[in-house]
Simulated assay, not measured.
Amino acid sequence: LKISYDFKEHLIPIDSILYIQSSKRVCEIITDDKIYRCYKKLSDFPKELPEYFARCHQSYIVNANYIASYQSGQFTLTNGAIIPISDSYAKDAKNLYLMNFGG
């Protein structure tokens, strides 16, 4: 994934991305060892990412490969991060989990 921030180009290995979080106009790309920031709309990311990434909230895209558990309203990732699931994305989020983990 290629991003630009502070006049620098960054190439981020897609498989290292745990989740992407948007706050105001800044997206934070959280990897297993670093946080990258960029000015980009969260809605621009899905077309650049594989299908195991899914929007689960207005402010979050999650990598299914790092989901440790699912319960109504949230994912818990392997690093312990809690990712909220909003009602509008709940069906897609549950399907993502079931497709990757079979329930």
Rank of each mutant, 00 (worst) to 15 (best):
D15R: 04
Q71P: 01
T78D: 09
F75P: 06
I35V: 15
D32C: 04
E9H: 08
I20K: 01
E28L: 12
C27A: 09
P13D: 04
I17G: 03
I3C: 07
G73C: 11
A68W: 09
F7A: 14
I82W: 07
Y60L: 07
L1G: 11
F101Q: 08
Y97E: 07
T78W: 03
S69F: 07
L18I: 15
C27L: 08
I61S: 03
L18W: 01
L18G: 01
I14L: 10
F7Q: 14
Y52R: 04
A90N: 12
I61E: 07
R37N: 11
Y66D: 03
K24H: 13
L98Q: 09
D15K: 03
L42W: 02
Y39S: 08
G102I: 12
N95Y: 07
Q21S: 13
V62P: 02
S23A: 13
I12W: 03
Q74I: 12
D92M: 01
S23G: 11
D92H: 00
I85R: 06
I30R: 07
K41E: 05
D33W: 14
S4C: 09
Y97L: 05
H10I: 03
F7N: 15
A68G: 05
I3W: 09
I85D: 09
D33S: 14
L1W: 06
G103H: 14
K2S: 04
S4F: 13
Q71L: 08
C27F: 12
K34H: 15
G102R: 13
V62F: 12
E28T: 13
P84Y: 14
H57F: 11
Q21Y: 15
A54P: 04
S86F: 00
L1F: 10
L98I: 13
R37W: 10
I20S: 02
I82R: 13
E48D: 14
R55C: 03
I12K: 00
Y97K: 05
T76Y: 04
K24G: 04
H10F: 15
S59W: 00
A81Q: 10
I12P: 06
F75Q: 06
L77D: 09
K8P: 02
Y39T: 03
Y89A: 09
L18A: 04
Y52E: 11
N95W: 01
R55Q: 14
S59V: 00
Y60E: 10
C38R: 00
I30P: 00
Q21I: 05
